[in-house]
């Protein structure tokens, strides 16, 4: 990793939550990672490993206990429009139309109406939702709402897009279509993305690199480079290279899951 093209650099990050009744939990411990410009990086790990916490720290929504987060060589001090985020839960503003939702960030920055409309149309086009502008979120399916949420985050043209299990609440069929859509969007935009998921196939299909996290306290266990050629199609999932990667990542996460359950190896099962 060449230091100067790092869009996002996290060094020596630790997060300790103090419990109400005393005592403390170390959610993330001495974690370091980097994301290059135009790179799609995923973080996978067993549940409760602190991967969502990590993403919220990058977004500036949680303060780390120690360590630093640098975006384009400037320290992250709080939330900002340069780090767009897509959440697992449905977070469209129900009182705004699709158009109003996508324009939300642009409006905050005082962009003129014609420009807002033009940008909103461009990103709704990108996620295949032109024509839904006047609809309210309650009229959209879950998958459509998440597409609008992606368009809303991208319309702000953030330096990095943070995605916290954005398809986690969708049914299996919709999820796979959404993965395909995100793959196509990425091939067109080459947006820098930090993506959190527990879906191994999703991580391999979409990413250039995958960080596998350990169980709590969360650290980086290994980094896996996804060498599958781009542009990718969903059919790549049937190739021997993909299957080998899947087995490797699966094995790594399984080790961690067994540790959570207090089983050091499968002999105990």
């Amino acid at each position: 990793m060449v230091a100067q093209n790092l869009r996002l650099a996290i060094r020596g990050l630790s997060v300790v939550f103090t419990r109400r009744r005393g005592g403390s939990v170390t959610a993330v411990e001495n974690l370091s990672l980097g994301v290059r410009e135009e790179e799609f990086v995923s973080i996978v790990g067993p549940s409760g490993c602190g991967k969502s916490t990590l993403l919220r720290i990058v977004a500036g929504l949680i303060r780390p206990t120690s360590g630093e987060v640098m975006l384009d060589d400037r320290p992250v001090e709080g939330p900002g429009a340069d780090r767009g985020m897509v959440f697992q839960s449905y977070t469209l503003f129900p009182w705004l139309t699709v158009q109003g939702n996508v324009e939300f960030g642009l409006r905050l920055r005082g962009r003129p109406p014609e420009e807002r409309r033009e940008i909103a149309h461009r990103y709704l086009d990108l996620v295949g939702l032109r024509g839904t502008e006047p609809a309210y979120p309650k009229e959209l399916s879950g998958g459509m709402q998440q597409r609008v949420a992606i368009a809303r985050a991208m319309a702000n043209e953030p330096a990095i897009l943070l995605m916290d299990e954005p398809f986690g609440a969708l049914d299996a069929q919709t999820r796979s279509v959404m993965q395909e859509l995100l793959l196509r969007v990425w091939e067109q935009t080459h947006k820098t993305v930090l993506f959190v998921t527990h879906d191994i196939d999703e991580a391999i299909l979409l990413s250039d690199r995958i960080y596998v996290m350990t169980t709590r306290p969360g650290r980086i266990k290994t980094e896996v480079a996804v060498t599958l050629p781009r542009p990718r199609e969903v059919s790549v999932m049937d190739t021997p290279e993909f299957i080998a990667l899947r087995q490797r990542v699966h094995g790594l996460i399984r080790e961690e899951t067994l540790r959570v359950l207090g089983l050091e190896s499968r002999d105990h099962l």
Binding site: L61, F87, T91, F93, L108, R152, N156
Partner: peptide, 26 residues
């Protein structure tokens, strides 16, 4: 929902924006 407020923050809202633009309509 807290995620609604957090979404607004990641879209560039400041604390003063959040009351009028998110909490009140929500």
């Amino acid at each position: 929902p807290k995620d609604l407020l957090d979404s607004a923050y990641t879209l560039g809202a400041r604390r003063s924006d959040v009351f009028g633009r998110v909490l009140l309509p929500a």
